[in-house]
Each structure stands twice: as C-alpha cells, then as structure tokens.
C-alpha cells in the first residue's frame, strides 16, 4: 500500500497529534511510514502542514500533485496546500457555511462547518482535529485504516483523553453520514 496524506491547519489545532495517530495506525499493522511535522515557530498560530506517507517511502515530504488525501482543519489552510493533492485525491475540509468555497477538480470532496458545531457546543473545540479525522474516515472511501484501528491508536496515544476523543470521532462520523 502507498497512501500520502497532508494535514493542514494552524498552530494550536493539533495537526501533529493527527500525524501521531496515523503513525500509530501504520505501526500497529506493521506498515512502514514516514511523516514530517512542524515544530518551533509554527506553535504561534502560524500555518502548519504535516505530511504522512504510508507504505515504502524514502523521504517524509509530500511533493506537489502527490497526496491521496488532505485533511484541512481550516478553509484557507486547505486552499493554501491544494497543490499537494492529486486530482484523483480527496479533500476534506472544515469551512464556514457562510464563506464562499471555490469549485475544485478533485475526485473526492467534502466540507463541513465544524467551527459552527463547536460554537453550538456539539463538541469541544480542542477536539477539532479528531472531529475532522472522523469526518475524513467517512468521506475518503480509500482511507487506509479502519475505524477500530483509528480508535485503538487514539487510545494508545493518551488513554486519559481517549474516551472523549472517541466520542468526538463517533459524532463526526455520524455528522458526516448525515450530511452525505
């Protein structure tokens, strides 16, 4: 298997957390992977994009026109990184309903106003990353891991907050199915 995922967001949204979850998913199944993370300056609310390449790869960076999936935790951060997604790939993005969203040429596309849902108290904003992962699980038909594998990875990351994260993941998957 070869599957390349870009996760785009900004500092503080927990982009690196998702890389770790996907890395554990791959590791648990004994599949090789290479990921790359942003540390340092990007902590301060700046753009953060992390790559994870699942399968036999020799460098951790995703080049343009190569990614199978992009999970965008915010609209503009998704648009900023579009060049990395191949046309047969899937984009799942958080974007406000009221904002205009451009027509895009990708095979897979799904968006949701996760900010609005968090504002309404449907899930805590700190769980936005996990929420968008759940949303991607439903909307990317080629997603390389099963729901259970993702849940196991979340549990082994941090057992203390796993329960809450899994609730968010389930909710996102329900929301994704409803909005389909």
């Amino acid at each position: 298997m070869k599957y390349q995922i870009v996760i785009a967001g900004f500092g503080g949204q927990g982009v690196v957390f998702l890389v770790k979850v996907l890395a554990i998913c791959a590791g648990n199944r004994n599949i090789a992977f290479l990921g790359t993370e942003n540390h340092g300056m990007s902590q301060r609310g700046g753009s953060v994009s992390c790559d994870i390449k699942i399968g036999e790869f020799t460098n951790p960076v995703i080049d343009k026109n190569q990614a199978d999936l992009m999970i965008a935790l915010e609209k503009n951060e998704g648009l900023r990184n579009l060049a990395f997604l191949k046309l047969s790939g899937t984009l799942v993005t958080n974007a406000k309903d009221k904002d205009k969203y451009p027509e895009l040429p990708f095979s897979g596309f799904a968006k949701i106003d996760a900010f609005k849902k968090a504002e309404r108290g449907e899930f805590p904003i700190q769980g936005l990353n996990v929420y968008m992962l759940g949303f991607a699980l439903v909307n990317d038909k080629n997603f390389p891991f099963s729901v259970q594998e993702v849940k196991d990875a979340i549990t082994s990351m941090n057992a203390k907050v796993a329960e809450q994260n899994i609730v968010i993941l389930d909710q996102a998957m329900r929301d994704a199915k409803e909005s389909k």
């Binding site: 900004f10 500092g11 300056m41 990007s42 902590q43 301060r44 609310g45 700046g46 753009s47 080049d63 343009k64 026109n65 190569q66 503009n76 951060e77 648009l79 900023r80 579009l82 060049a83 046309l87 451009p102 895009l104 040429p105």
Partner: peptide, 21 residues
C-alpha cells in the same frame, strides 16, 4: 514535470504568519 501545480489550483490565500500568542 509531474510535480507541477495545476494552474487552476493557484488560489491567492491570505498569509497566516506566526504571531505572539
């Protein structure tokens, strides 16, 4: 060049530089 950006994807997106917290 298989790594080129399709021109249709060149959006102008507002920069998000790092800022003091």
């Amino acid at each position: 060049n298989i790594y080129a950006t399709p021109p249709s994807l060149d959006f102008e997106v507002e920069a998000r530089p790092p800022a003091l917290c």
